[in-house]
């Protein structure tokens, strides 16, 4: 039984359909990534799961119980890390952790003890007595994460927890999250960083314009492109017309076509060297042809026709 089940969630704000029929499941000990550009509907989805928004349609089930049949129960077993730094910046890290621990239901003594453990785990013990407003962005992000972990949540919702911090700080946080997953926590992780989704998540859902376009492991999503490699032709491709090239559509699938670049995937299991020969024989002025492993961006590109980084 999945620990979290989002079933055909829908939410509109006036005329805008922010989330439209989104369904997915997260198992205990699984890290599920919801990948999409800004405005795709990730935060709205996570807000419905956390109980901040009531869905217009669909249902959220946490640990086998519909969320809205007993919201307090669901909230007791989940931890939420919001995208914004929702902290009392005038207070110290320890004061913040202890307060949020008490809000999660811990006794003052347990909150104090657990705050000490988390400060150590997040490498913040040395600065525990300093006001959060004096911290670097990465340290604030760590406190922001820690505030959701006081009560050992079985389900953790992370809404873009690494936004706006340097690469090293991001790596530290990602490593910490991997440790949480290993402890059996079910984790829903939203991000618009491809690398995070690729390296961190066991399964990934790709969301855009409020709809879940595809989901699966990285390998399964790559498989949608027809294998584990893509061919990239670079040069003057402004006049290229793949439909006019005899037999091209039967052998290749176009992933992206631009003035100076054409990205294609081979159809079926074929020898890469044969594919390269066929591509070099095309009636275009290709200056460079390269082979690469398909990325999530390529999957997104194929699904939406645009680059996730745009």
């Amino acid at each position: 039984m999945p620990f979290l089940h989002a079933h055909r969630l829908g939410k509109s704000f006036g005329e805008v359909r922010a989330v439209d029929g989104v369904s997915f499941e997260v198992q205990a000990g699984e890290l599920y990534g919801l990948l999409g550009p800004n405005g795709a509907g990730k935060t709205t989805t996570i807000s419905m799961i956390a109980g901040l928004l009531k869905p217009d349609a669909g249902e959220v089930t946490v640990d086998g119980t519909p969320f809205w049949s007993d919201p307090q129960r669901a909230k007791r077993i989940m931890g939420v890390v919001p995208q914004e730094l929702a902290l009392y910046e005038e207070l110290t890290a320890r004061e913040n952790l202890e307060f949020w621990g008490r809000m999660a239901g811990l006794t003052p003594r347990d909150a104090r003890q657990r705050a000490g453990e988390l400060l150590a785990a997040l490498s913040l013990t040395d600065r525990a007595r300093d006001a959060v407003k004096t911290y670097s962005g990465g340290m604030k992000r760590r406190v922001n994460l820690g505030c959701a972990l006081l009560h050992h949540p079985k389900l953790l919702l992370l809404d873009e927890p690494t936004v706006g911090i340097d690469p090293q700080a991001r790596l530290n946080i990602l490593e910490f999250i991997r440790g949480l997953r290993a402890n059996g926590t079910a984790i829903l992780y939203t991000t618009h960083y491809l690398e995070e989704a690729e390296t961190l998540c066991q399964r990934i859902g790709i969301i855009d314009h409020g709809r879940l376009l595809a989901e699966g492991t990285l390998g399964e999503l790559q498989e949608r492109l027809g294998g584990d490699r893509l061919f990239v032709l670079e040069g003057d491709l402004s006049g290229a017309q793949p439909d006019a090239w005899p037999g091209f559509r039967e052998r290749f699938r176009v992933i992206q076509q631009a003035e100076k670049q054409l990205v294609v995937a081979a159809v079926g299991q074929r020898d890469p060297s044969d594919c390269l020969k066929e591509l070099l024989a095309l009636p275009v002025r290709a200056e460079n042809v390269t082979l690469k492993r398909p990325s999530l961006n390529d999957v997104f590109l194929q699904l939406t026709g645009r680059d996730l980084r745009e």
């Binding site: 307090q72 929702a86 999660a104 239901g105």
Partner: peptide, 14 residues
């Protein structure tokens, strides 16, 4: 503005 109220609302606080 800084999300503290929303964070309070996702805790088991009525």
């Amino acid at each position: 503005r800084n999300g503290v109220l929303r964070r309070l609302a996702v805790h088991p606080v009525r």
